[in-house]
Design a protein around this nucleic acid. Structure first.
Lengths: 104, 104
DNA sequence: ACAAAGGTTAGCAAATATGTTAACCTTATA
DNA sequence: TATAAGGTTAACATATTTGCTAACCTTTGT
């Protein structure tokens, strides 16, 4: 029930900001999720790499915050090697007040 | 509480079957989700293609059941053009009796 | 029968992701 | 100080996806 917008509110309401933030947050999330799943499975980057027949630098790249070119084939291999399921879901866009997301 | 396994139970319990089914179901799902999201937005393949500056054959390929090479950049563009959010989530593997999935 | 709209498929060049090597950085530990 | 483990980054060749064209198939409407 906030009445007045703070400086940050105005800044973060900007379309350009929102667009960029959403884009980067998406990626940040995936990299972080991979790292989490990997740690959860008690694997080093090198150990995970070995399981899917690649190298640790490829894993590091995928866990990098700035990466943007994920492919599902590799993403699936990583998920399986970490003993997790990878779920891809199209959902209805979140509302402005960020309340709920409805499956289509 | 079923006591005896039916023929189908045995068939579907096989490792090889399970592996293939999971793989194909994954893809089937994405293609279907794209088609659904697209219809939801009242778009033809050609109209959606135009929005993301590609051609209808690329969309058709992505909606195909057999396709296996999805890339996140394109998947994201499609989702946005259909007015939907694309969610990618690593979850704990489902249990054998297929009960619940827990977020890591 | 014809045309148009919506969708599918094959084939190919161009763009992009992937695998790999080698160098580098920290941190921990002998 | 040295050594090893874990991780990051750049650069490059190879593999794969993507965009594109053109052909084809159905269905619908005239």
């Amino acid at each position: 029930m906030r009445k007045t917008k703070t400086y940050m509110d105005k800044l973060m309401g900007g379309k350009e900001f929102r667009r960029r933030f959403d884009e980067e947050y998406q990626n940040l999330c995936i990299g972080e999720q991979i790292a989490r799943a990997r740690h959860h499975a008690h694997l080093t980057q090198a150990a995970l790499a070995k399981r899917i027949h690649t190298t640790k630098s490829a894993i590091s790249r995928y866990e990098s915050v700035d990466y943007n070119g994920y492919g599902l084939p590799l993403l699936n291999k990583i998920a399986k090697a970490c003993g997790t399921d990878l779920r891809i879901v199209f959902t209805a866009k979140r509302t402005k007040n960020n309340s709920r997301a409805v499956t289509l």
